[in-house]
Amino acid sequence: MSQKLIEVKNLKKYFNTQKGLLHAVDNVNFYIHKGETLGLVGESGCGKSTTGRVLLRLIEATSGEVFFEGKDILKLNSSEIRELRKEMQIVFQDPFASLNPRLSVSEIIAEPLIVNKIYKNKADMNKKVQSLMNTVGLAQRLINTYPHELDGGRRQRIGIARALALNPKFIVQDEPVSALDVSIQAQILNLMADLQQEFDLTYLFISHDLSVVKHVSSRIAVMYLGQIIELSDYKSIFTDPLHPYTQALLSAIPIPSLDIKREKIILQGDVPSPINPPDGCRFYGRCMHRKDTCLTKTPELKELHPERFVACHFVHNLGLVK
């Protein structure tokens, strides 16, 4: 396979809360190849966004390593991080909250150029802002408008233009379309696919929407309660899910047809609290294949076939692997 751009090893992020230690991200391992899109799916509160933010050091990790082009970015000091920001960017979920209401469109897009002192002369910078607006499909006449005057899709285009301003190699897409309505979602997803082609970008695409993730990702990682429980290419996850949780998750996707009958796996119980979680498999309480071993031993994310990872003790025994 091609080169790894990002490699995450044993990444942990714990938050101190009044009730105890919240394990938001717990021992997560994955890598992202150059030029691909890794989809990260999971329920709300499973640590997807935290993972994305830790990767950019918007949140400091508790422990672990994140390699970007072979450099451990968790060890960088603050001036080195500022350099890193040019390489790694983020597009936020809520295009209403992620744009400063006091700044005009051009000021928002110019902000990364100003703070990183990219251009000495203002005319060059304005030219760059205009070309960025063209790239993301914003009309030039919107240059003096303010975010509140625009609809969600256009706002998200501003967010994308801001992320592209520094010519990054890697962009974390933190649920970029979940706040938009469906017709706009498609436009934004297509725009991002085009940009990926044009600028050779690598994406970490965080979402809870499986159909969106399926559409954009080359590989997909499924997260449950702070851990990645399955990771493989986008086809195998949908055709041949291995982990019991992934199977249950996929069986919940509605099929828009009355004739097709499908076995639905209804999970019992609730997601346990991420505060001081017990040892053993996080999915134990809800798994239909659970055994005593699962209660004591935490399953590691193991590579079954090349590029197919799963974290379950009994994935072989239960005939889950065909």
């Binding site: 950019l56 918007l58 500022r82 920001r85 040019k86 960017q89 983020i90 936020f92 979920q93 809520d94 909250a97 992620s98 744009l99 400063n100 209401p101 902000e111 990364p112 703070v115 990183n116 967010g159 801001r162 301003a165 520094l166």
Partner: peptide, 12 residues
């Protein structure tokens, strides 16, 4: 989020 966004682009 816009403050976080500013931090993400390297604003001090």
């Amino acid at each position: 989020e816009f403050v976080e966004a500013a931090r993400a682009v390297g604003t001090n």
